[in-house]
Nucleic acid binder design. Structure first.
Length: 284
DNA sequence: CTCCTGACCTGAGTGC
DNA sequence: TGCACTCAGGTCAGGA
């Protein structure tokens, strides 16, 4: 499910509820998601104080005293926040109760497919964690983000990375080691906005094309964050609202419909196991 | 090394 | 209504 904008939506909802609050209840309902949960998880959380909620790529990082709790939502993960104890739903795997002394909130992690994971490391070791150390730069800078994220991607970096890859640009942009945080939806949308075919080899994206690509990526992500992400089937914001960016998608999920700029039918092809949607006329 | 495929898992949608 | 089948916001191990 969630790409960077959806994860950022979750982070931004968790931050005001968790920052400075104490975790007074921890209910872990199964031993594993994609991988076994860390055996220390209960102790890492229970009766501990949260100092900040950050994000790196698609990973939410919750600093709990000396530990960093890493939360990845996989394809189908979501978080609900409620002010009273919620009724347990299927696939609610972890429930936390947090209190800042005045208010109490319940935070529930739901993940039907269990492609997500939770891990726990010392804060000092966070950047060395295998799923952190390989990540490329962040595509956009987010205000109010307390976590020290990696560098923000810039044109010189992008040009150099593109020049070294023989993959199709579609696969290049999905590769979290190149730029971190993009997924299938926003890659399709960014390539459409930039007028670049998903089939084009990365090393041939240069000059004006590369210069269009970077702002296309950044704008599509920034707009999506403002609209609470994209709700297709699973994603909801933690307060239960949908993400409204779905109405701004110009190609994703629209095969057979006419391109908004040139009226050519949108095509769907499969590239490295993922569907790419694009306009064969506008995107070259 | 790089690149691609299949596997992981459940639920929603479609067509018969 | 039921059943078989396909597909899905991600990533990773393994093979070419």
């Amino acid at each position: 499910m969630p790409e960077l904008p959806e994860v950022e939506t979750v982070r931004a909802a968790l931050a005001p509820v968790m920052t400075g609050a104490r975790i007074v209840g921890v209910d872990i309902r199964r031993p594993d998601l994609r991988w076994p949960l860390p055996s220390s998880l209960y102790d890492d959380l229970h009766n501990k104080k949260v100092s900040f909620v950050g994000r790196r790529a698609k990973i939410i990082v919750i600093a709990v005293e000396e530990k960093a709790i890493m939360l990845h939502l996989g394809m189908s993960g979501s978080v609900r926040i409620s002010s009273h104890k919620p009724n347990a739903k299927p696939h609610d795997h972890i429930e936390l109760q947090v209190s800042n002394g005045q208010e109490t909130h319940y935070i529930t992690l739901n993940d039907p497919r269990r492609f997500g994971y939770v891990d726990s490391v010392l804060l000092d070791d966070l950047s060395a964690h295998p799923s952190m150390s390989q990540l490329g730069p962040e595509p956009v800078a987010i205000e109010d983000q307390t976590l020290q994220v990696g560098d923000i991607v810039d044109l010189p970096y992008l040009n150099q990375a593109l020049a070294q890859s023989k993959s199709p640009i579609k696969s290049f942009l999905l590769d979290q080691r190149q730029i971190a945080g993009l997924g299938n939806i926003y890659v399709c949308e960014a390539l459409h906005r930039a007028g670049i075919s998903p089939k084009r080899k990365a090393y041939t994206v240069k000059g004006a094309r590369a210069a269009r690509l970077l702002p296309a990526i950044q704008k599509v992500l920034e707009e999506a964050i403002l609209q609470g992400g994209t709700s297709l089937r699973d994603h909801k914001q933690p307060d239960g609202k949908l993400g409204y960016f779905v109405q701004s998608l110009l190609v994703y999920g629209r095969d057979g419909e006419l391109c908004t700029s040139c009226k050519t039918p949108i095509k769907a092809i499969v590239q490295s196991g993922r569907t790419s949607f694009y306009c064969p006329q506008c995107q070259r």
